[in-house]
Every structure is written in structure tokens, then in C-alpha cells.
Design a binder for these strands. Structure first.
Lengths: 172, 172
DNA sequence: ATCGCCTAGTCGACTTGTCAACTACTGTAC
DNA sequence: GTACAGTAGTTGACAAGTCGACTAGGCGAT
């Protein structure tokens, strides 16, 4: 459900193919949602079946044909309805924290490498987000809202780094 | 897979019933994982089938019988193996941020109530975590590790509140 | 020329997670 | 005296997400 709405939201910004959507989930939308491409294509098919989107096959110039998906009026209504509805409650799920939680079953070295791996992953993500942040500017309200969610990701990654410092300090 | 390991980890701390596990996911483990009770009972059955846990029926005094699950040696080995294995990569999924991302489709009031709802939910969670934090002390390495993950949750919730302030400020 | 990568999309099998209903007993509040 | 909340567990139907393999053409490098 959420994925269908997010795709609808992306289609509302611009018509896209499943491939384009996948790239968005791997970059601009990656800080709040991810999706497998199989799932993306299936969801697109469902959106079309529900009349929330339309397909137009665009002949690819030197590339495969593109199935451009465009949001319909019904789709826009469904999106607006979702936005105004009660937010779904968040389910926290962090396998890294789970490992730390049970870290007693790990020796000092194992724990250290667990933290080191996390640190690296967070740094990588942070670099990507900051790059993205620098590439975009808040031209209108929509862009400003999108940037603000990116700032959320950046803030949390910085918090994670600070926590890593404190945690490693405390567990010495 | 992760849920099975987390349950194994909890059983390694103390033998438990599915009901006990559910309460843990709703409290002490809730900051890094949640689980539906149907899923918990099914996973427990799988752990028993795999020889990672054993069941013992304890007659309930005035209450229903309890199916106490105890980790086996094989289960402990599986848990240790998981802890030492490559961490699964994190999939960020936040429906609230998704809503903000597409917030252009919402009027000022809708956006305000979206933020207000989040703020309230975060406050509530933070209060729960801080309560938990105050109730527990770091007696040994295991307890220290568990508390440190709780601190992670607290740090992120505080960051979220700060971000909410900044975001609302910026979007005025 | 052949290998790997990018674009673009499809399919089947599978795992994981969610929802709602249902059984069954106890203790407490109204 | 009965309605509700808590303990304890089960089941079926679904929805959501993951993985790997497959087709198919184009482009650049070796």
C-alpha cells in the first residue's frame, strides 16, 4: 500500500518507467523507502489496473522501449486521500542494533568489527546524502519538502556516528 | 531469519513462552525489532523443528499452561554463527518521511497536523525509552550492550524532535 | 570478437509479515 | 452477574518484499 502511494507520488512529479523508479529508490527516495524492481513493476501494473496510472510505450532511441507511466486524475485523488489519511505506525527494524543487543555472544574483536562495519556504512550513506543535498536546491515548496526529508536522513546519520563514538567509548 | 535469531537471542537470556517474547517485542526489544504474535509462535515452532529450541509445558497456576521455550546447544551455535556473520544491509522505510516528501499535495493545515502527529508519537516513544532506561542498570557486559542500543533509540528520537523543530521553522 | 555493463522489463518461487478470528480460563470492576 | 481485561496459544487468508534467472539490444573496452 505505502509503496503504491509512493510510486504514485513519484509519478505525480514526473511520468516515469519502472526503471526510472528503481533509480529513484536507489537515490533520491532511498532515505525513506527502498524497493525491489520486481515489486516496482508489479505495483505499476496494479496501479494501471486500478486506473491510477496510464502507460505509454515510447520507442527507445538506441535503447529498449520505455513504458512511460503517467498518473491519472483518479491516481491523483488516491494520492491526496492517502496523504490526508492517518499515518501508518512505524515499525522499527534494525538488524545492526539487534546484533549489538546480543553482543554478549561476541568477543571484543567481533564487536569491534561490527561497529567498524556500521561506521563505514553510515559514512558512505552520509556522503551520498550530502552529495545529493548539495546537488539540489529548494526552488519551490515541493522541493523544499523533499530536501527537508533528506536533512532528516543526514541528521540521523550524524546522530548515529556520534552514538557510535559514545558507545565504543563506553564499551571499552 | 533475523527474527528467528532475535528470538534465539532472547531465549539465550532466559527461557520464555511466545507470550513473553511478544511482551519483549513490545517493550525491551521494541526499539530495534517488532513482531506479530502469529509470527512469533510460528517462528518458535520452526526453532523447535530445527532443534534450536526445546519446549517444556509448564502447568499454569490459575492461568493457561505455558509453553516454555529453552535454547539448545545447537541453537546457541546458530546464534553465535549469526552474530559473527555479515550483517544484513539496512532497508530504510519510513512512511512518515514519505508523506512529508510528497507533502506538496497537502495544504498548510494537513502538513501541520502531520508534523504534530509525529511529534506526539516521538514524545511518547521517548518517554517509554527513558522510563526503560531509568529502570535498568548496566550490571554486566550483556546489560551494558543492551542499554547502549536503547541509548541509540533515545538519541535518534531526540534528533527527530530537533529535526521537527528545524523543519517546521523552515517550512513556515 | 567477446566480455561486461547499462537500459528495460518479466516471471516464478519463496520468505516474511499482517490481520482477524477463535478457543479457554481467571480475576476484577461495575 | 456479567462485561471486560489479561494470559496463552492457534489458524487461515493475505499482503509485501526478496532472489535469481531470463530476454534483448546497445555501447565501450580489451
Amino acid at each position: 500500500m505505502v509503496l503504491a502511494r509512493i510510486i504514485l507520488g513519484l509519478l505525480a512529479i514526473a511520468p516515469m518507467t519502472g526503471y526510472d523508479l528503481k533509480r529513484h529508490f536507489d537515490s533520491t527516495a532511498g532515505h525513506f523507502w527502498t524497493a525491489d524492481k520486481a515489486q516496482i513493476y508489479r505495483t505499476l501494473a496494479k496501479l494501471v489496473a486500478d486506473g491510477h496510472a496510464e502507460v505509454e510505450t515510447v520507442a527507445g532511441s538506441g535503447a529498449p522501449d520505455r513504458q512511460e507511466h503517467r498518473i491519472t486524475a483518479a491516481g491523483e485523488a488516491a494520492l491526496a486521500e492517502w496523504l490526508a489519511s492517518e499515518p501508518e505506525r512505524q515499525t522499527e527494524r534494525d538488524p545492526f542494533l539487534a546484533r549489538v543487543f546480543f553482543g554478549a555472544g561476541l568477543d571484543e574483536d567481533g564487536l569491534r568489527s561490527l561497529f567498524a562495519g556500521r561506521r563505514e556504512a553510515v559514512h558512505e550513506r552520509l556522503a551520498r546524502y550530502e552529495q545529493l543535498r548539495a546537488e539540489n536546491s529548494a526552488t519551490d515548496r515541493g522541493a523544499r519538502l523533499r530536501l527537508v526529508t533528506l536533512d532528516n536522513g543526514i541528521a540521523h546519520l550524524r546522530t548515529e556516528l556520534a552514538w557510535l563514538d559514545a558507545a565504543e567509548e563506553e564499551l571499552t
